[in-house]
Design a protein around this nucleic acid. Sequence first.
RNA 1: GCGGUAGUGGUGAAGUGGUUAACACACUGGUUUGUGGAUCCAGCAUGCGAGGGUUCGAUCCCCUUCUACCGCCCCA
Length: 433
Amino acid sequence: MAKPIFQKPKGTADLLPGKTAQWQHVEAVARVLFGDYNFKEIRTPLFENFEVFSRSAGDTSDVVTKEMYDFHDKGDRHIALRPEGTAGVVRAYVENKLYGPEFDKPYKTFYMGPMFRYERPQAGRFRQFHQIGAEAFGSDSPALDAEIIAMVVDFFKTLGLKNLKVAINTLGDKESRDAYRQALIAYLKPHFDELSADSQERLEKNPLRVLDSKDPRDKVFVADAPSILDYLSEKSIKHWEKLQEILTTLGLNFEIDTTMVRGLDYYNDTIFEIMTTDDSLKGAATIAGGGRYSGLVEEFGGPETPGVGFGIGVERLLDLLAAQNVSPDDNQNIDFYVVNIGDETDIAATKIVQAVRAFGYVAERDYLARSAKAQFKTADRCHAQYVITIGEKELENQVVNIKNMANGQQTSVDLATLYTNLPTILDAEGDKE
RNA sequence: GCGGUAGUGGUGAAGUGGUUAACACACUGGUUUGUGGAUCCAGCAUGCGAGGGUUCGAUCCCCUUCUACCGCCCCA
């Protein structure tokens, strides 16, 4: 028995033709819609210098410490497959001096493509997965934050998604965050022994993450924990309030979730997530996340430049589209099937099928020298609208039979006419009905 | 990185320590030899993820490994 010798690498997927139509649809909608918002596509390498990611994501983040897909190449360069899109875009922004005066600000760009994280695959999580994302550099206006959020929501609505929730939060600027961090530690420290083991560790490494804990032991304390909102600087408060004002004006529903924390360390001020309220995606309910970051461009050697961006998980998005029954149909029907009977008709069949294609129809033929019956069965399975039959008699008379599969009507047509005038023949045939 | 469940043909699957691994769907061929969606007939896993071991004998027991799925961590 045939057994495959190879398997795809763990956590990867083959997207077969039955699926790719949906991917193309999602990508096409993104291109058009993001274009309406004046974002232009950027394509950066799938791999970068390891430091591009370790520097941006933060050394304590899990993405860097345990999920990086990295290796040393033949030149002993430490390379990593990109775990997310922002770092590469920022690197390209700085390297290509896109902050230059000849470029409009904000500089708006979007990307789509595979990302890689070395982790255990499970629901809605893969080692190679795909994101569609966007970044905008050079403005710290909350209007830009709002626009970005609106664009993602617009995108999802255009695709037909329902039951979405937009959660927003602010992390404040650096001083706000430092002040809050201290307050949080001061609040949690006395309860250290009562926290879950995970949170005890979080308290050391990144106390904000305790807020995000699912452990009931932690939730007790999180409920009464100080809120970041009480520690915001004047500037951050303004930004935060303005953002809400704009979102409200746009009629965009959102929830404030002060316990929301994001995975990458570079965010400040606005952060947001868009999740489904369906339970169909289980642990993978978050389909998009993003926020504002201000230090990154500088960190990469560029001028101080604020940025905002987001990433959408395409696999999760497609799962959700399927769960909500709004996936586009993938129409694999064909227009013409050419049935040929007898060896002598083989070449003629190819000529015919090519001629039909030249008129812009989807056409297929048999390549296995099968019986007429078998060929018709295949035509039927493909939902062919018409079958063109050529046998030895027809070949001799330079004609073919065209059969309308819906009504079973078959008419004889000169080959010469078919080659020059196929659409007209079909029109005439349509008029008869 | 940790924990749990599973792995039989193209698909969905039944099954038992012991001669020919159910059944269904799909597929292929046939049902007077050149025409479809129905019926009927026939064919379709020397093999039960891979590698070891126990046994007279293993798909069924044990170990290892790989993969998938679920949960934790974390995240899209």
